[in-house]
Nucleic acid binder design. Sequence first.
DNA 1: CAAGTAGATGGAAACGGTTCCATAACAACC
DNA 2: GGTTGTTATGGAACCGTTTCCATCTACTTG
Lengths: 373, 373
Amino acid sequence: MTIKEIAAESGYGVGTVSRVLNNNPNVSQEARDAVMAVILAHDYQPNANARHLKLQARQGISIIIKGTQNTLLSDVLEHMQLLIEQAGYVCMASYIDQDDDEIALAEKISAEKRPMGIAFLGANVEGKEKRIEALGVPCLLVTVGASHLNVSNLSSISVDDEAAAEAMTEYLYKKGHRNIGVIAGNPQLSRPSLLRITGVQSAFLRHGLMLDLHRQVEFARYSLQGGYDAAVRLLQDFPEMTAIFASSDIMALGAIRALYDKGLRCPEDISVCGFDGIELSRYSHPKLTTIVQNTATIAGHGVDILLRCIEKNADSSHEVVAFGFQEGDSVRDLCFPASNGSEAGDTEPETAGSRQTAGSGMAYVEKPVLHSV
Amino acid sequence: MTIKEIAAESGYGVGTVSRVLNNNPNVSQEARDAVMAVILAHDYQPNANARHLKLQARQGISIIIKGTQNTLLSDVLEHMQLLIEQAGYVCMASYIDQDDDEIALAEKISAEKRPMGIAFLGANVEGKEKRIEALGVPCLLVTVGASHLNVSNLSSISVDDEAAAEAMTEYLYKKGHRNIGVIAGNPQLSRPSLLRITGVQSAFLRHGLMLDLHRQVEFARYSLQGGYDAAVRLLQDFPEMTAIFASSDIMALGAIRALYDKGLRCPEDISVCGFDGIELSRYSHPKLTTIVQNTATIAGHGVDILLRCIEKNADSSHEVVAFGFQEGDSVRDLCFPASNGSEAGDTEPETAGSRQTAGSGMAYVEKPVLHSV
DNA sequence: CAAGTAGATGGAAACGGTTCCATAACAACC
DNA sequence: GGTTGTTATGGAACCGTTTCCATCTACTTG
């Protein structure tokens, strides 16, 4: 079925049929009805390739996701996809392996499919500024801040990783933890990994503590196995450790498994906290104490920014959204050892709640997302 | 950059340039070099829309995945994507919500993008046979058997859900469990959900037990929340229960969380087993006893089948791959209560190992995938 | 009533490729 | 030296849309 056949059968020309399809007002009701009748009768669907070819293809928005197993990003993707389609765009999602080069994929997609904009979920763009500018379309970095890069076509949406890590460390400190091991992502591969380490350092410094990068910090992939292996190394290098700060919930869960395999319990022997606030963190045993990144907010604001750049030709911008704090059962209170950690709200140490909005100029305040039955 | 500009700059015609791009042998080495030089100098990428338009677009394979949060399917997708691209096809992945109609999406994709074949990961196709045939291209159902449907263009690849559920029930029986609660997916929405229930029933019947569908079986979504809620209902309706058979690992984890929230421990008070064998099942606490679906095998055989249908015009076929069995710490042995379940291999009850290959005619035997440090 | 305006329509051109067909160059053969 | 075959090449036609432009009709207006 082509537009020509529709034209022939309806007795009108191809131009009129095309106008009907695109809701062009300059069509008589009579013609519209006649054409629509034929279209419906054959349930005709326009050929996307021909349409995109003619339109220079700039109809869709491409989303590149780093890693298939990251449920936080899957969640953000799901929200973004919906919003993008509601805004009338086609959405093309592509996954790429954690170790591969997402800019190379973006270049390929950009040349082949000519999208109107590209969103990167969890990408590493350090040192690739020129290649991003060369893409020539508005880009958005999601869950990774890029305000320091100064790339004209690159926006970003993220939480304040440094402040969040600092708040979490502060929480651990208030609970009496002084020997805190850190499981971090490779800081050369992603800026959030670096910021989460410096956040811990800031909190340490405030209390006159030193973070020994050799013994206390282990680098790992953002995976269960990565968290597991890093925890094993920490136990060896830093035996006086009472708590582990993991840079993602998945790493935290891997670390907890390592503890149990070594005959240690969480939180009784070693406390563990995470970062991300994925759904699973509320179901794991023990329930994770973690930083919550609100996926709906991130997706919503991210799509807003990207569409503003695309439609209104707005300048790129960098937004920081508030993070939340979820208190689970995975951190032991060393100050009041009687409390086993399951009753929340006894100390209420959330400096996070007040700090999180500062610097982002937003009225939005993230409420801790706690599982309720 | 278009092919015409390349032609002009290289001094050859568009035909020759196109032949170079498509590795047509009828090009002199001289011309090939000249054209390639220009192509590389401008790192030209052909426009996919124009190419697909001319080629009647039948170049790609579309994959439709039900639900973004299912890491088992994400895993299968990852493998399939790689294999499809290695075979020289473009791969288009689309996620669809667990509650939406995947055939409607397939119809849209089929009409717009005209793929050469469509793979459905975890779809529900019951009662939609005619619509699948109407798609007019080879289709493949992954992790869902379809041999009973007799749709000419629909193949399938799956484990024997019924035998797997039966084997797991048998295992629970051997461990002394008689009051087994079942958390199942909606059997009207997916055949595997039904088969897993009948598998449990078969094992029950063999031992003269009855499965009380009203008290012992709860239906739920394949999600953490679904498993959680179902477990809560089971605890109420079926208080004598000593074990829960969940139809997915995610449901099992949700159920375990429900137990802890009710002050019960797993496996000490209630045993729980899962289905799928996702990576997380080896890291959760307790480690899950579960059926393992080997994602690499499923993806490999699935892509094979689909490509055979596409390239060689082969008839549709239905393959059943072997399932694996993973013994974790989530099932308590009621017969030898001294054993706390963590030392595997003391009873070696794997009838699964021998049963799994029967009926599939395959030499392949899945080894239990156990986490080793 | 002439002239201008607005709305509806048909059809050609263009988007960027692939492929077929015609042609040219050259070698091999009788 | 013509005939035949092989190989390399250029270019037109086409894929299915959108859009621009020309045309036509009908209505408004001075």
